[in-house]
Design a protein around this nucleic acid. Structure first.
Lengths: 211, 211
DNA sequence: GTCTATAAATAGATAGAC
DNA sequence: GTCTATCTATTTATAGAC
């Protein structure tokens, strides 16, 4: 076996290859779902043999788990409690909602694979879907909910269950992203920039909950 | 071949059997998706042999198409333009949004299979997903959008793109249903009645768009 | 680390008896 | 109308050479 500089050129290092397979699989799984994607397709798209896929991941399920784990657990997503922190401290309500929405919409637009993957795993009752829910959604509800409660105590927002407000707000932006990436890719129904959407949603919600 | 009363007791009539297979398949497809459900499973769940499934539906795809077609096309869904018609004529804005939301949430709760099926077909890029979009979603945007435009002309609603308002409003209710049936079945995050949700969403939106 | 070849299991679909 | 048996293709996963 020759160990020279060249080996790293012609052959990929183990970790590198592993990551490459992971990325290819993520794209395919997000497009066609877990059961709809074959290991052969993944291997072909990655330019390796099927055996190589199984060398890096013992089973197809393990590969799937590694993807969700990487995306949902390893800090690839911004910590919800840290978003719009400065606006929160200024108690600039509009900025809080606007910045949060814009960040989410941009993220969804740049990385629609992840949303599709999450939907697939939710529909397939994958355990890691629940994990994402615990790890991320619950955090958003706590973080944004506590801000809303604070503004209620300030006498600025109407008295109502803060979690309902979060549900309404998150609904606007998630549904907008979902709609854009699943049903209306050509933006036939509504073609607006993320900035405009963020502005409109923030304004509707803000007027909706302000006294 | 014996044709007596008894034959109808021991053996199902063709159409009846067809409908039964259709219903069983709908449940399984909604649970595990098109590719995740085998014809063998469908046959077993319906209590017939696989050959019987293929007698009624030439291919698995044809079976899937028949389900979506039946659900999305054959008037099993209320015509969006007819919902809350009376409230619309009274120009009772709150009632319009409240009734529309309550109807949708109840429908989603009683029949979560259809929403799951739609999501699956959207993720799998099934042509019938697009058909549903044309047939149903577009209608809602036109119907509700024109009501909003009317109320803007009345000087009651703020000037903004009516379609954005529809997007925000539909988002609240769809996301609420989606959340309840996909991620938070135990209602750990937010456990409210459909009436309460409809009330809150209608109020937030109404205050959000009223001058 | 990577390949080819192949085993083992499962999928959709059909044939033909009753 | 319904069944059993079976065919063919595909899919996951492994063995073993290089």
């Amino acid at each position: 076996m020759i160990r020279t500089e060249e080996t790293t050129v012609t052959r990929m290092a183990g970790d590198e290859r592993r990551l490459q397979i992971l990325r290819v699989a993520e794209r395919l799984f997000s497009q066609k779902g877990f059961r709809g994607t074959t290991t052969k397709e993944i291997a072909q798209a990655a330019g390796v043999s099927e055996a190589m896929v199984f060398r890096h991941f013992a089973t197809k399920s393990e590969l799937y788990a590694a993807i969700i784990d990487q995306k949902a657990c390893q800090g690839n997503l911004p910590e919800p409690s840290c978003v719009a922190l400065e606006a929160r401290e200024r108690k600039d309500d509009y900025a809080v909602f606007y910045e949060l929405t814009l960040l989410a919409l941009n993220e969804h637009e740049q990385n629609p694979e992840f949303m599709r993957l999450l939907l697939h795993s939710a529909l397939e009752n994958h355990e890691l879907s629940q994990m994402f829910f615990e790890r991320f959604v619950v955090t958003i509800y706590e973080s944004l909910g506590s801000y809303i409660a604070e503004r209620q105590r300030d006498g600025v927002f109407r008295q109502m269950d803060p979690r309902i407000v979060v549900r309404a707000f998150v609904g606007m932006m998630i549904h907008h992203s979902l709609n854009n990436s699943l049903w209306d890719k050509e933006r036939r129904l509504l073609n607006i920039s993320n900035e405009e959407a963020a502005h409109s949603f923030a304004e509707i919600l803000l007027r909706g909950v302000t006294i």
